[in-house]
C-alpha cells in the first residue's frame, strides 16, 4: 500500500496552482490528503502529477461578512470547527464538522477538499446543499461561482472542469431566528453516515413552519436536498402528521441500493426517523434561542 510514482509540485500561489492544473490534465490536487492519500496508497488512483496546495496560503481563511461565512478551500476542518465567528454566524457548521471523521482527520482534512471530493455520505456537501451555499472556483480563464445545487453531479464527481480549483466555500449564515440540527447514524463513531439529515427551520408567529431547509447525506449518489419534504412542512405546525408526511417524502429520495451495512428499506426508515428527529431538535433549539 504505497503510492505509485508521481511528479510533485508545491506552487506558492493559487495562480501558479491553476497554471499547473491546466498544464497537467492527469494531475491530482492535494489538499489535506485525507481522502486522496488512502486512494493513492491503495493504488486505486495513480495520478501522474500531484499539485500540493499547502503553500498557497491565500486559500486558508475564514471570513464572515454579508450574512455569508466564506471559507478558504485550504482551511483545515478543525480550524473552521473552532472558529468563533463562524460559529456565531452559523452554528450548523460546527455541528456538521463534529460529525466528520475523527478530530485527527479534521486536523488535516480541508473544507475545500471535502467539498471537492463530493462523497455522497459526507457531511459538508450535505450542509452546503441544505444552506444553498456555493463555491468559488478558479481556472485559467478566471473565477466563477457554482451553487451547491449545480456542483454535486454524482458519486465523487463535481461539475468542476478538470483544470479548475476550488478557492473558497460559502456557507450562508443562519440568523438567530433559525433553528438547526444535523443528525446522522453511523456504524462506528467517525464513520461515514449510513444516512444523515441536516435541517434548518424558521417558525412564524403562529408556530407554523415559515422556512425550512432539509438535506440528506448517505442516501444517493450526491447529497440530496429534500425539497418535497420541505414543501410538506411549509405553513404547518410540526405536528405528528406533518412530521410523518415530511419523513415519508424524504424517504422517497433514497436511491442507494441494498448494501451490506444498509438495505434500501432500512435507509428509508432511517431517513424518515432522522428527518423527524432533526426537525424536532431544530425546533427545540429555536425555542431555546428565542426564549
Amino acid at each position: 500500500m504505497k503510492p505509485s510514482r508521481f511528479e510533485y509540485f508545491a506552487p506558492e500561489s493559487l495562480a501558479e496552482a491553476v497554471a499547473l492544473r491546466d498544464a497537467h490534465p492527469g494531475a491530482a490536487v492535494l489538499a489535506g490528503g485525507q481522502s486522496l492519500l488512502p486512494i493513492m496508497n491503495f493504488r486505486l488512483g495513480r495520478p501522474e502529477q500531484v499539485i500540493d496546495l499547502r503553500k498557497a496560503s491565500e486559500l486558508a481563511f475564514v471570513r464572515v461578512q454579508n450574512d455569508v461565512v466564506e471559507v478558504g478551500a485550504m482551511t483545515r476542518q478543525r480550524d473552521l470547527e473552532r472558529d468563533e465567528g463562524a460559529a456565531r454566524a452559523n452554528p450548523l457548521i460546527a455541528e456538521s464538522l463534529r460529525l466528520v471523521a475523527h478530530a485527527v482527520i479534521r486536523n488535516r482534512g480541508t473544507v475545500g477538499g471535502s467539498i471537492a471530493h463530493a462523497d455522497p455520505a459526507a457531511e459538508l456537501p450535505a450542509l452546503l446543499s441544505c444552506l444553498d451555499g456555493s463555491v468559488e472556483v478558479a481556472g485559467v480563464r478566471g473565477r466563477r461561482r457554482i451553487s451547491a445545487g449545480e456542483l454535486f453531479v454524482f458519486h465523487l464527481t463535481t461539475s468542476l472542469e478538470p483544470n479548475e480549483v476550488i478557492t473558497s466555500v460559502s456557507f450562508p449564515a443562519l440568523e438567530p431566528s433559525w433553528g438547526w440540527s444535523f443528525l446522522e447514524v453511523t456504524r462506528r463513531h467517525g464513520d461515514f453516515a449510513l444516512a444523515g439529515v441536516c435541517a434548518a427551520l424558521k417558525l412564524d408567529g403562529d408556530r407554523c413552519v415559515g422556512q425550512v431547509r432539509l438535506a440528506a447525506c448517505g442516501i444517493g449518489t450526491t447529497p440530496v436536498r429534500l425539497s418535497t419534504a420541505e414543501e410538506a412542512l411549509l405553513s404547518r405546525p410540526l405536528t405528528e402528521k406533518a412530521l410523518r408526511e415530511a419523513g415519508r417524502a424524504a424517504a422517497g429520495y433514497v436511491t442507494a441500493g441494498d448494501e451490506t451495512q444498509a438495505s434500501t428499506a432500512y435507509r428509508r426508515q432511517l431517513v424518515e426517523a432522522l428527518v423527524r428527529r432533526s426537525l424536532l431538535r431544530a425546533a427545540a433549539r429555536l425555542e431555546r434561542r428565542t426564549s
Binding site: 447514524v185 456504524r187 444498509a262 438495505s263 428499506a265 432500512y266 426508515q269
Partner: peptide
C-alpha cells in the same frame, strides 16, 4: 447483528 439486519427481522 446490524441495524439493517434488525430492521429486516422486524419486517
Amino acid at each position: 447483528l446490524s441495524p439493517t439486519s434488525l430492521h429486516a427481522a422486524t419486517r
